[in-house]
Structures are given as structure tokens and as C-alpha cells.
Simulated scan of single mutants.
Amino acid sequence: MGKVRKHIRLNSLSGEETSFAYVEAFKTLRTNLEFLSSETDCKKIVVTSPLAEEGKTNVSINLAVTLADAGKKVILLDCDLRRSILEDYLSSEDKNKWNKQFTKGLSGILCGKFNLAESSIEMKNLGITVLPSGKHPPNPSELLASKKMGQLIQELDEIYDYIIFDAPPISLVTDAAVIGKYADGALLVVRYKSTPVVMIKKAMENLNNAGIKVIGSILNAFDIKKSNIYGKKYYGYYRYAYKKEGEGL
């Protein structure tokens, strides 16, 4: 019997419970990436983490959505051909279409069985295109390093403003380093009060050894309202003032 897949709730930017700080953090990240793109043509971005369960897939999705909200054409590639969870986040958005495409996806393209048009999913409610991982192959690293992968990236580069690669943890397998050769840079996601410092250092070392430019890091699960950097009173004032400035626009 096959594994029963469980849907994981996406911490959506448009959710009613989503904090102001969370949304603003992604807008700031978008602004920084747009600046980099204007200076260095940084449009192909690998999102990885030192370990599993650091929230990198959630970050990848919301980064792609934030870029799309600014009018950019964005595709999100699920490059975790070993233990993908992107489907668990997004399958409920269009379950029938997702289930059909899941048997194709990136691995199906790299194996020469399918093309991009029949393997990708237009997530109209999110404003992005998603390429699922497809069926998990026995040789993920070899497929990601293949000539077909390079050809696919060239094809996507001509169509999309941004290509976001949701990659496996860099400290556990070599896949993220392999994917990095196609990218303009990497974002490293670490979880607040969870990721061991030694693993962050190892992740940075692995990225540097692979010649992948680290363009930034993301501190995930950080609650600014509970921190000592900005008190609740200041945070509340900033939020209120920001909303007031936007009134009447």
C-alpha cells in the first residue's frame, strides 16, 4: 500500500493569521533580490537549508508568490527528488490537477518521458508556475547533473523572470550543490533557536566548496514581537503608522 500523504498548511502571505512582520520580511527580501537582479542579473535562486524541517519549502513558495505579486513571471522548481514535501503544501489548492501532474514533474522531464508544458502546473490563485518533483528516481543527483537539466534551465531562463529552486538540505545530500551550478546564488534558511551553529557552518562550507554564491540567509520562525530588538509597543506603533499612511491610496 502506498504512503498516505498528509497536507501541510502553508503559512500563506494572504492568510488572516499572517503577521504584518512576516509579510514585510518577504517584501524586503523581494526588494533586495530585485536590487541584486538589476546589478548582477540574479534571477535563478536556490533555496536550501542546513537540515530538514527548517521551513525552506514554505520560504520558497512565499518568495515565489511575493515576486509574482510585483508583476514578475516566476516558476518554482521542486528539486527535492528524494523526499519532496511541496506537494503536501500545495496539493489541496488544485488536487485533481496536481495528482495528475505529480506523476510527471521534473524527474519525468529529466528522464525524457515528458515535456515542460505537460509537467508544470499553473497555480492561478498564487500567480506562479510550479514544476513538481515527479516520481522519486533511484539516481536523483545524476539526473540533476544531467545535460537535460541544463537544457531545461536554458528553456526556463527564456520564459521566466525568476526561477526558484526548492533544493534539499545542503548538509545532508549533494543535490543542492549540484543544482547550484545552474543558479546565480543561494539563500540559506535557518530556523531560530533550532539549527545548530555547527550545521550552519557546515552548510556554508559546502556551498562555498561547490562555488555557489550565498546571496543571503533567512532566519525562519523568528517572532519579532517576542524579541528584545523591538518591543511590542514599538512594533504595534509601527504597524499602525504604516497602515495609516496607506489610507486613502
Rank of each mutant, 00 (worst) to 15 (best):
M1G: 13
G2I: 08
K3W: 13
L10M: 05
E17A: 10
T18S: 13
Y22R: 09
T28H: 08
T28F: 12
L29H: 01
S38P: 00
T40H: 14
T40L: 14
D41W: 09
K43Y: 03
K43R: 15
K43F: 00
I45V: 15
V46C: 03
G55Y: 02
K56S: 07
T57C: 04
N58S: 14
S60I: 10
A68G: 11
A70F: 12
K72N: 15
K73Y: 02
D78F: 12
R82D: 04
R82N: 02
I85G: 00
L86C: 07
D88G: 07
S91Y: 13
K95N: 10
N96E: 15
K97A: 14
T103H: 12
G105C: 03
G105R: 05
L106K: 06
L106E: 05
I109F: 07
C111H: 08
C111A: 15
S119C: 11
S120Y: 04
K124F: 04
G127D: 13
T129Y: 14
P132G: 09
K135A: 13
N139V: 03
P140A: 09
S141A: 15
S141Q: 03
S146T: 11
K147G: 00
K147W: 01
K148W: 01
M149W: 12
Q151Y: 11
L156K: 10
D161V: 08
I164V: 15
F165L: 14
P168I: 08
P168M: 09
P169Y: 03
P169D: 06
I170W: 07
S171P: 04
G185W: 10
L187Q: 02
S194A: 12
T195L: 05
M199C: 03
A203C: 11
N206T: 11
L207I: 07
V214S: 06
V214K: 07
I215K: 04
I218W: 04
A221G: 00
A221K: 07
K225Q: 09
S227C: 01
S227V: 01
Y230K: 08
G231P: 02
Y234P: 00
G236V: 00
G236H: 10
A241F: 07
K244P: 02
G246L: 14
E247T: 05
L249S: 10
